[in-house]
């Protein structure tokens, strides 16, 4: 079986760790970060990459559902496997259930190093606004954007020393009047995506079959919790 991994660059650190842990040696293609802010564009890029792959039997998609960006994705030749998650946070926490529980506690804004390195993230946006509008107005705007979020949760996936980013998350949380925590993540779901078994936690699309609304919704499984698609935000 010729297998290829197609992944979001934001998840690079965690994917590398999962690959190392599972020992699977499939080639990896990365799609650039930041596109989830424009789901149509992310959809287009994923489909382009899928279409470009030839002579492949299986494509493992390492993405979240990210605002319908996976809706309608299909491959003519290859089977595709996707985790049944609404965005990539459960891939970093280990399960959709974990995400559900954490988000139930309070409105939670999740952060990883990949998010801070590759995405046009909220801390970067805050700094831009401070330069443009001054600290007071920037804080006012950011507080509106963060609306009903109460805490930042830095996911420690074990893929890098989390201390390297903990300080800036803490600083920003304090400025926003939000709490901040470091939480142990897990690559369990990522590893399972790489080696199987592909049970209810995954969507398996046969060649020619496209991802439908029903695949991701109304299942009651894996698609819950208050998410952080402040997304459409940063374009």
């Amino acid at each position: 079986m010729r297998t290829v991994i197609l992944a979001c660059q934001t998840l690079q650190d965690e994917l590398k760790l999962a690959i190392q842990r599972t020992g699977c040696e499939y080639p990896v293609l990365y799609v650039e970060s930041g596109l989830h802010n424009t789901p149509e564009l992310l959809h287009k890029r994923i489909q382009e990459e899928v279409d470009r792959l030839d002579n492949v039997d299986l494509i493992l998609l390492v993405f979240g559902y990210c605002g319908n960006s996976l809706l309608g994705i299909r491959s003519q030749q290859a089977k595709m496997v996707i985790a049944r998650v609404d965005d990539c946070i459960p891939l970093l926490l280990g399960s959709a259930e974990e995400r559900r529980q954490i988000s139930k506690e309070m409105g939670t804004y999740f952060i990883t190093k990949g998010w801070l390195d590759y995405e046009n993230n909220i801390i970067r946006e805050y700094r831009r606004c401070v330069e443009r509008y001054g600290e007071g107005r920037a804080a006012r705007v950011m507080k509106i954007m963060l609306g009903h979020y109460q805490r930042f949760l830095l996911i420690d996936t074990g893929a890098y020393p989390v201390e390297t980013i903990a300080e800036q998350v803490k600083d920003f949380a304090e400025k926003m009047g939000m709490s901040h925590e470091i939480y142990n993540g897990s690559t369990r779901l990522l590893e399972k995506l790489l080696i199987g078994p592909w049970d209810d936690e995954f969507i398996v699309l046969e060649p020619g079959e496209e991802l439908a609304m029903q695949d991701i919704c109304a299942s009651g499984e894996g698609v819950t919790g208050v998410s952080q698609l402040l997304a459409s935000s940063f374009r």
Binding site: E125, C129, R137, V141, S232, S233, F234
Partner: peptide, 14 residues
């Protein structure tokens, strides 16, 4: 056109 971001839009609304 991508010259302003959401934060700017919120500033405008404010």
């Amino acid at each position: 056109q991508g010259a302003y971001f959401l934060a700017d839009f919120i500033m405008a609304a404010e």
